[in-house]
């Protein structure tokens, strides 16, 4: 049995901590924030949408992401909502929808009535939609709180907030510091994502809805308490300053176009997350001086953390665990 140190309690750090504990290792987790999941993970939509993401991502994102919903369901029971994803567009941008369909699999076309059956709030608003039945979503904040609890139950030790870092003899250190790793890991860059939360009782959605647009595609992910996460911009910069007026306007405009009732909603939160990414936008487990790093989760933190965490845990864990994994 070995002792590992996980630096960073975001989705990557927590996922790998869990995977190591599951293999019988000991794990300490440090984060300078007082609670888990306050980094990029805090701002995520929480979509587990491997089929939709295939539109702009390589096939491997689909294959590695397929099991994500099962993984989350297992480690945080009840966290995953399996209602699929709905993709719509304004009539003028219908070619974007056909293009989306041609780039992806796992969907069916819905007509006006079928859209109403699925999402009564959107009744009469769209003639056509794509439905990705086998996708899922979760609330990232709740999921990470739940995952931290699972980790504690398995014996993982958290050292949160500023304080003396534990001085122990670690077998290896796992750098899961998300965007903070950008200066240290060659090839890593930041992609800014701006988002907001709307609150209204006038719209009900049961699943994430993506609205395509040539310049400002958005998605709306329903949460409990009449809240909706609206995201997200993709800007090539590491600047994590407050959301710009332009982005706010674009996101609100798009939400309003999806449903006019969003015009009356309250803006209860705005946020900016930096997605760490490599040039191909695909994450990697890379070697560092004292261990491994899980880096470049890009816009697939919740989708790909399970697969990346397993990969890292297998590499770190002892040979017995490795064999066991291969048999499993």
């Amino acid at each position: 049995m070995s002792l590992f140190l996980v630096k960073g309690a975001g989705v990557a750090g927590l996922a790998v901590a869990y995977e190591l504990l599951r293999r019988g290792e000991d794990v300490d987790i440090v984060d300078y924030q007082d609670t888990v999941g306050q980094g990029a993970s805090f701002f995520a939509g929480g979509m587990l949408a491997p089929y939709c993401e295939r539109e702009a991502a390589e096939e491997v994102v689909l294959t590695l992401g397929l099991d994500a919903a099962d993984w989350w369901d297992q480690v945080v029971p009840g966290a995953v909502i399996r209602n699929g994803t709905l993709v719509v567009t304004q009539p003028r941008d219908i070619t974007d929808l056909t293009r989306f369909a041609s780039r992806t699999t796992g969907h069916v076309w819905l007509d006006r009535n079928e859209i109403t059956d699925l999402e009564p709030s959107l009744s009469g608003r769209f003639e056509k939609a794509l439905f990705f039945e086998n996708e899922a979503h979760l609330d990232p904040r709740r999921a990470l709180t739940g995952l931290a609890k699972t980790i504690r139950n398995l014996g993982g030790l958290f050292h949160l907030g500023w304080g003396p870092s534990p001085k122990k003899n670690y077998t290896a250190v796992l750098d899961c510091t998300g965007p903070a790793a950008i200066p240290h890991i060659p090839g890593l860059r930041g992609v800014r994502g701006e988002m907001l939360y709307l609150e209204t009782g006038e719209v009900t959605l049961s699943r994430p809805v993506r609205m395509l647009h040539p310049r400002h595609p958005i998605y709306v992910v329903p949460r409990d308490d009449h809240r909706f996460m609206v995201g997200a911009t993709m800007i090539e910069t590491e600047d994590d300053g407050p959301i710009s007026a332009r982005s706010l306007m674009e996101l609100l405009n798009a939400a309003y176009a999806l449903h006019p009732a969003f015009g009356e909603a309250r803006v209860v939160e705005t946020g900016v997350g930096i997605r760490p990414a490599f040039a191909d936008n695909f994450p990697r487990v890379v070697e560092t001086g004292d261990g491994l790093a899980i880096a470049g989760m890009y816009r697939h933190g919740f989708l790909l953390a399970p697969a990346m965490a397993k990969q890292a845990a297998i590499r770190l864990s002892n040979g017995a665990a490795l064999r066991e994994e291969m048999i499993a």
Binding site: R189, G190, I235, E236, T237, E238, D239, G241, S247, A279
Partner: peptide, 16 residues
């Protein structure tokens, strides 16, 4: 404009 925000340039992307 697209790749800057608040006047700060997208360092890594521009480098690329």
């Amino acid at each position: 404009r697209r790749e800057t925000s608040g006047g700060k340039a997208g360092g890594a992307f521009f480098e690329l």
